[in-house]
């Protein structure tokens, strides 16, 4: 059986680890370490290598969920983790200073992978900050010439994580 890998990336604190924990059958494998910079105001620990969770399909085949570190200095891990991946879930934390720039940065860095597979964008922490408007995110996508799904989600909820995965595989299948 071929390996099925889904990659979850996004800004530090956007909820990548939480999303994997919400849907993984087994307790996620984590590589959290203490934060020593400004991020410490937001969270005490951050992922420095990867998160890992899994799902088992009805025939026993596994779907692996890999969460990347969020910080750009861990870009080398992004490149390692996407190898053989089925598609990308990009989480954007809307409570940060410039979520639109954050989205751009990840889309650019994962551009080759996205071109080969697909991406769904999940906006998190919308309860804390409703701006930018959803239309602003779609306007930013204009230059990609295609419409990626942008979904407002609560990654603590399993159904929201399922929705993103379904949107991703639908995009891979039909878009």
């Amino acid at each position: 059986m071929s390996e099925i890998k889904l990659i979850i990336t996004g800004t530090p604190g956007a909820g990548k680890t939480t999303a994997i924990a919400a849907i993984s059958e087994t307790p996620p494998v984590r590589t959290d370490q203490a934060t020593t910079d400004d991020l410490a105001d937001l969270k005490e620990e951050t992922t420095v290598a990867m998160d890992f969770g899994d799902l088992t399909l009805e025939d026993g085949q596994k779907v692996f969920l890999y969460g990347t570190p969020g910080q750009r200095r861990f870009e080398f891990m992004w490149k390692i983790l996407v190898q053989g991946g089925l598609g990308l879930i990009l989480l954007v934390d809307c409570s940060r200073d410039d979520p639109l720039a954050d989205m751009d940065m990840y889309l650019e860095n994962f551009a080759d992978f996205i071109e080969e597979t697909g991406v769904v964008i999940g906006l998190t922490r919308r309860d804390e900050c409703e701006s930018p408007d959803l239309d602003d995110f779609y306007e930013r996508l204009d230059r990609w010439g295609t419409v990626f799904p942008i979904l407002e989600v609560d990654v603590r909820k399993r159904e929201d994580v399922s929705l993103m995965i379904n949107a991703l595989i639908s995009t891979i299948e039909f878009a």
């Binding site: 494998v29 984590r30 590589t31 959290d32 370490q33 420095v48 290598a49 990867m50 570190p69 910080q71 200095r73 861990f74 080398f76 891990m77």
Partner: peptide
Amino acid sequence: VAKLSAMMGSVLALGETIARE
């Protein structure tokens, strides 16, 4: 140096995680 620092953080965390697993 910046890249190596990030990588060493990842490597050590992975080592600790692998040992735990």
